[in-house]
């Protein structure tokens, strides 16, 4: 069976595309899927450092396009999981080194050996973005519950529909439940309604994401963080499971006690 190409994009920068790509890659691979994460942000490569694989890169996407190596040689295996690979972007070139047709061709070749290709799009709506969505079977839009990010997400959703890559599905990232509770952050339901797209994930703001980026160990590698669990929930939904959208929060003392008594693993 040919692999599915998922592209993660947002319009606005800094909302969590690369974090989401790394973690969905990890979460899907944890569930036994053969996964390759593809960094389509040529010239500003970051997915490698997010995943802690920066020291193992030999060739990159542009080397493949320009036929300095075979595709297989450019893939970096993540040793923490059995079937997770990274196709890194070039750091010293710019986005014009790759075209949409190159991305389509490379992804066609990768489809044969993987269940999922998760493509990390650059910010913006220019060529890098076009490259990233050209091979996509499905597009996941990531946004934050704030005005500028939602506006850009709406623009991108329109472009994806125009390219007939839709309907895109939505991840809302960096939710602060406490601010939502006192009315100082938009409710996720309001964001979904404004953008009129299907929701696939809610990720709470979580300091663990920052320490994970510091160390190159994506949060989804363990069960210990709220954000990590939220990414696993998205992976389960991608695999067709019906996972309800319950607000994730830290378990209180009694909940932890209850969970301890009942057996673990319910929260996932």
């Amino acid at each position: 069976m040919a692999g599915r190409v998922l592209t993660i994009t947002s319009g606005k920068g800094g909302v969590g595309k690369t974090t989401a790509t790394a973690n969905l890659g990890v979460a899907l691979a944890t569930r036994g899927q053969r996964v390759v994460v593809v960094d389509a942000d040529i010239g500003l490569r970051n997915l490698d450092v997010m995943m802690g694989l920066e020291n193992r890169i030999v060739y990159d996407l542009v080397d493949v396009v320009e036929e300095r190596c075979r595709l297989r040689q450019a893939l970096v295996r993540d040793k923490r999981l059995s079937e997770l690979y990274l196709l890194p972007a070039a750091q010293t070139r710019d986005k014009t080194a790759v075209g949409p047709e190159d991305m389509v061709r490379i992804c066609e070749e990768l489809r044969a050996s993987f269940d999922f290709l998760v493509v990390d799009s650059p910010a913006g709506i220019e060529q890098g973005f076009r490259n990233a969505i050209a091979p996509a079977d499905e597009v996941l839009i990531i946004t934050n519950p704030e005005v500028a990010a939602v506006r850009d997400a709406d623009r991108v959703i329109g472009l994806i529909e125009a390219e007939e890559k839709g309907p895109a599905r939505l991840i809302i990232n960096r939710i602060k439940p406490e601010m939502v509770r006192r009315g100082d952050m938009m409710e996720t339901a309001a964001v979904v309604e404004l953008l009129a797209v299907e929701l696939i994930g809610l990720i709470p703001e979580d300091e663990a994401v920052i320490t994970a980026a510091n160390t190159g160990r994506p949060v989804a590698l363990s069960d210990n963080s709220l954000a990590g669990r939220a990414f696993h929930n998205i992976a389960r939904r991608l695999l067709g499971e019906d996972v309800p959208f319950v607000p994730l929060r830290e378990a209180g003392f009694f909940e932890r006690l209850l969970r301890f008594v009942r057996t673990e693993g319910e929260e996932r």
């Binding site: 704030e146 006192r182 009315g183 100082d184 938009m186 409710e187 309001a190 404004l194």
Partner: peptide
């Protein structure tokens, strides 16, 4: 109104 409400209306 709370700022979340203002954000929604502006959007």
């Amino acid at each position: 109104p709370p700022s979340g409400e203002i954000a929604r209306e502006r959007l």
